[in-house]
Amino acid sequence: GKMTGIVKWFNADKGFGFITPDDGSKDVFVHFSAIQNDGYKSLDEGQKVSFTIESGAKGPAAGNVTSL
Rank of each mutant, 00 (worst) to 15 (best):
V28P: 00
S67L: 14
K58Q: 12
G1Y: 09
G39D: 11
Q36A: 10
I6N: 06
F16P: 00
G24A: 07
K2S: 09
P60N: 08
I35D: 02
K41D: 06
Y40V: 11
G46C: 04
I53G: 03
I53P: 05
G39I: 10
T52W: 11
A12E: 14
I53W: 08
N64T: 09
V28G: 00
G5Q: 00
A34W: 03
A61M: 12
V30L: 06
E45A: 11
G63I: 14
I35N: 03
F29L: 04
S42C: 05
L43T: 02
I6D: 03
I35A: 03
K41Y: 05
G59F: 10
V65Y: 01
G59A: 06
T4V: 14
D23S: 11
A12P: 07
E45D: 08
A34Y: 04
D23Y: 08
A61I: 14
D44G: 15
S67M: 13
G63Y: 10
I6R: 09
K58R: 10
A12K: 15
I19V: 05
M3E: 06
T20G: 06
F16Q: 04
F10Y: 12
K8W: 03
K14E: 05
N37R: 06
K41A: 07
G63P: 02
L68P: 07
L43C: 02
G56P: 05
D44A: 14
V30W: 02
D38F: 07
G56F: 13
A34V: 15
V65R: 00
S33K: 10
F32M: 13
W9A: 03
G46Y: 07
D38E: 12
M3W: 13
G46I: 02
S50G: 09
Q47T: 12
I35R: 01
T4W: 08
I19L: 15
S33T: 15
F32V: 11
G46H: 08
K48P: 12
D22V: 07
T52M: 06
G1F: 10
P21E: 02
D22E: 10
G56W: 09
F10N: 01
S50E: 11
V30A: 03
S50M: 15
F29Q: 02
K14N: 04
G56D: 10
K8I: 07
G17C: 01
Q47W: 09
G5H: 00
S42M: 15
F16E: 03
K14R: 11
G39W: 12
N64Y: 10
G1K: 09
P21R: 05
A57W: 13
W9H: 04
K8D: 02
A57R: 13
A12I: 15
S25Q: 09
L68V: 08
T20Q: 12
G63L: 14
A62W: 01
K41H: 10
E45R: 14
E45G: 12
M3A: 08
H31V: 03
P21L: 09
I53S: 05
S67W: 12
L68M: 12
Y40I: 14
I19D: 00
F18P: 00
L68T: 10
D44Q: 11
V7A: 02
S33E: 05
P60S: 10
G56E: 09
E54I: 14
N11W: 15
V49Y: 02
G17R: 00
P60I: 11
K48W: 11
G17Y: 01
D27N: 08
V28M: 05
G63E: 11
E54L: 15
D23L: 06
V28R: 02
Y40R: 03
N64F: 09
T66V: 13
T4Q: 07
N11S: 15
G39E: 13
V49R: 00
Y40M: 12
F10Q: 01
K58A: 13
F10I: 03
A62E: 01
H31Q: 04
M3S: 11
A62H: 01
S42H: 13
S67H: 12
A57F: 13
A57N: 08
G15V: 02
F10G: 01
S55K: 15
P60E: 14
T66F: 07
A57K: 14
G5F: 01
D13Y: 13
G17P: 00
Q47P: 01
G59Q: 06
G17E: 00
K2D: 08
F18M: 07
G24V: 04
K26G: 15
V30R: 00
V30H: 00
L68E: 10
G59M: 06
S50Q: 11
G46E: 03
I35C: 03
K41V: 11
G24W: 06
K14F: 09
P60K: 07
P60T: 08
D27Y: 04
K41F: 08
F16R: 02
N37Y: 12
G63W: 13
S55A: 12
E45Q: 12
V49N: 00
F16K: 02
S25M: 12
S42K: 08
V7Y: 01
D44Y: 14
T66N: 12
A57I: 14
N37L: 13
K2F: 11
V65N: 01
W9M: 04
G5V: 00
S67V: 13
N37T: 13
S50T: 11
K14L: 14
K58E: 11
N64P: 02
K48G: 06
V28C: 04
F51Y: 11
P21M: 06
G46F: 06
D44M: 14
D23V: 09
T20Y: 09
L68I: 11
M3N: 09
S33H: 09
I19R: 00
D44T: 15
T20F: 08
V49C: 04
F16A: 02
A62T: 02
F32K: 08
D22T: 11
A61R: 11
S50V: 09
N37G: 13
T52Y: 13
V28S: 02
D13H: 10
V7Q: 00
S50D: 06
G39M: 10
Y40H: 15
D22G: 07
Q47G: 10
V28F: 05
N37Q: 13
K41W: 08
K58N: 09
K14G: 08
D22Y: 09
K8C: 04
G59I: 05
I53H: 05
Y40L: 12
T52Q: 13
D22C: 05
Y40K: 09
Q36N: 12
F32N: 06
F51D: 00
L43A: 02
G17D: 00
I6G: 03
K14H: 11
A12N: 14
S50P: 00
F51E: 00
A61F: 13
G17H: 00
K58M: 12
F51I: 02
D27I: 08
I19E: 00
L43G: 01
V65S: 01
Q36S: 07
E45P: 12
V30F: 15
G1D: 12
S33Y: 06
G1N: 15
H31W: 04
V7I: 08
S50A: 13
Q47N: 07
D38L: 11
A61P: 02
K41Q: 11
K2I: 15
T66R: 13
S55V: 15
T4P: 03
E45Y: 12
F16G: 02
K8Y: 04
V65C: 03
S55D: 08
N64D: 14
M3H: 14
A57P: 13
D22A: 12
F32R: 15
Q36M: 12
A61S: 06
D38C: 05
T66Q: 15
G24Y: 07
T4H: 10
